[in-house]
Design a protein around this nucleic acid. Structure first.
Length: 407
RNA sequence: GCGGGCAUCGCCAAGCGGUUAAGGCCUCGGAUUGUGGUUCCGAUAUGCGUGGGUUCGAAUCCCACUGCCCGCCCCA
């Protein structure tokens, strides 16, 4: 019985690795320009980091974590990277630097869920975190960054949705008002919504149940929600964000039903969606988390960030072709072929030869499949110290010395 | 945790109870011991996810299991 990769995990094969390399390279380019620095945190952390950081009312913490005990310590494979980034920020005293402190990261995350389109148990995220700036220009900055990054990958028309959840102060009020608006038709909602009503009423807005959505519409919940006032500070912040986005010419849609499932978000939340992803349609999600640094033991520090799912991103990008190598050395003399191959590599070219010493015609056929040029190195070439270089695209063949070729 | 669908060569597949399980791609070899990518010929599944059962006879029908995919929940 062959051992297979575990459920919900995938091998990234040579055929598709080019996409990944390009995504990571673009991330580095785009984020570096904005002076975001890459950070790499451990793949596992102490379990309590996620319980405190992500929130113990979330599904992620309640039923999706890969947790194991080693030497009496409870450790967990990271389900996301924001908590780890904040932990590192505190552990290495980044709060002593002049704000903002700007990080970006990439890497695998782990969540125990039933796999489906756009969802795996081991998946990859690229994300940014920005610490120390309360002003809405920081929110705009990270949204701009997400948009620039997507643009650099040729993804231009994705929808940005934004909303504001308010701060701790006004969110409590918001929840009460929301409950009041929902109360009249609470009985008609699904079981999940009924239990969310007490535990986490904001999440009711996120319900996908058709009957619930119909009831929301019949009772004009959207208007009721829009009518709920944020405190002055929060509504100002939200207003400023929209002004910044307008100035930056970033198109967005306001979605008063946009609620994120992680507990740490405050004020701004946003998602970037695509219609080509199946039912898991968010390629990017994030927002502001002004309370998280404090929750994890630091002084109050405003922060904002997002994460993208690399697998989802990848499925939006067409397959990027692997480039052909520069030279394939065709020769009956394996020693000379090997020597020439290594000389070409030393000069910075990609090169290969036929390890099997097959017939000339087979070698040329192989060359046409994998290389831009074939270098024919036969008896005559070796004796008279020249190379026959054939362009496999145009069939043109020229006679050159090694020195001319590598110039 | 709950629904739905699918499993035939490395990949894509035809077959729907009856003699040796189509075809295509890829791979390998030959036509062709120095000029390929087009062409022609040839090779490649004692086996149809696994285990039972029905039948004279099963890839084809029935049952169980496993795996994968899709959806719900939640999230990237």
């Amino acid at each position: 019985m062959l051992i297979k990769a575990p459920k919900g995990t995938k091998d990234i094969l040579p055929d598709e690795i080019v996409n990944w390399q390009i995504i990571e390279q673009k991330a580095n380019e785009v984020f570096s320009k904005a002076n975001f620095k890459e950070i790499r945190t451990p793949i596992f952390e102490e379990t309590s980091l996620f319980e405190r950081g992500v929130g113990d009312t979330t599904d992620i913490v309640n039923k999706e974590m890969y947790t194991f005990i080693k030497s009496d310590r409870s450790l967990t494979l990271r389900p996301e990277n924001t908590a780890g980034a904040v932990r590192a920020y505190l552990e290495h005293n980044f709060f002593r630097e002049s704000p903002p402190v700007k990080f970006w990261y990439k890497g695998p995350m782990f969540r125990y869920e039933r796999p489906q389109a756009g969802r795996q148990r081991q998946f990859h995220q690229i994300g940014v975190e920005m610490f120390g700036i309360q002003d809405a220009s920081a929110d705009a900055e990270v949204i701009l960054l997400a948009s620039e990054f997507l643009k650099s990958l040729g993804l231009n028309d994705l929808t940005v949705e934004i909303n504001s959840l308010g701060c701790n102060k006004c969110r409590a009020e918001y929840k009460e008002n929301l409950k009041k608006a929902i109360a009249p038709f609470l009985d008609g909602l699904c079981e999940d919504c009924k239990s969310r009503y007490e535990k986490n009423p904001l999440r009711i807005l996120d319900c996908k149940n058709e009957d619930c959505i119909r009831l929301f519409e019949e009772n004009n919940l959207k208007n009721s929600v829009s009518g709920i006032k944020l405190c002055d500070e929060c509504s100002n912040h939200y207003k400023q964000l929209k002004e910044y986005l307008d100035i930056l010419n970033i198109k967005y849609e306001e979605n008063t039903f946009l609620v994120r499932g992680l507990d740490y978000y405050t004020k701004t939340v946003f998602e970037i969606k695509s219609n080509n992803l199946g039912s898991q349609n968010a390629v990017c999600g994030g927002g502001r988390y002004d309370g998280l640094v404090e929750t994890l033991g630091g002084v109050h520090t405003p922060a904002v960030g997002w994460a993208m799912g690399v697998e989802r991103l990848n499925s939006l990008i067409g397959k990027i072709q692997d480039n052909k190598i520069d030279y394939f050395v065709v020769s009956d003399n394996k020693q000379e072929a090997l020597k020439l191959t290594y000389k070409l590599r030393a000069c910075g070219f990609s090169a290969e030869f036929d390890y099997n010493s097959r017939k000339f015609i087979k070698q040329l056929e192989k060359a046409s499949k994998i290389a831009k040029f074939a270098i024919i190195l036969g008896e005559d070439e070796i004796k008279n110290n020249y190379l026959s270089v054939k362009n496999m695209e145009t069939s043109e063949q020229t006679r050159e010395t090694f020195e001319d070729l590598v110039k």
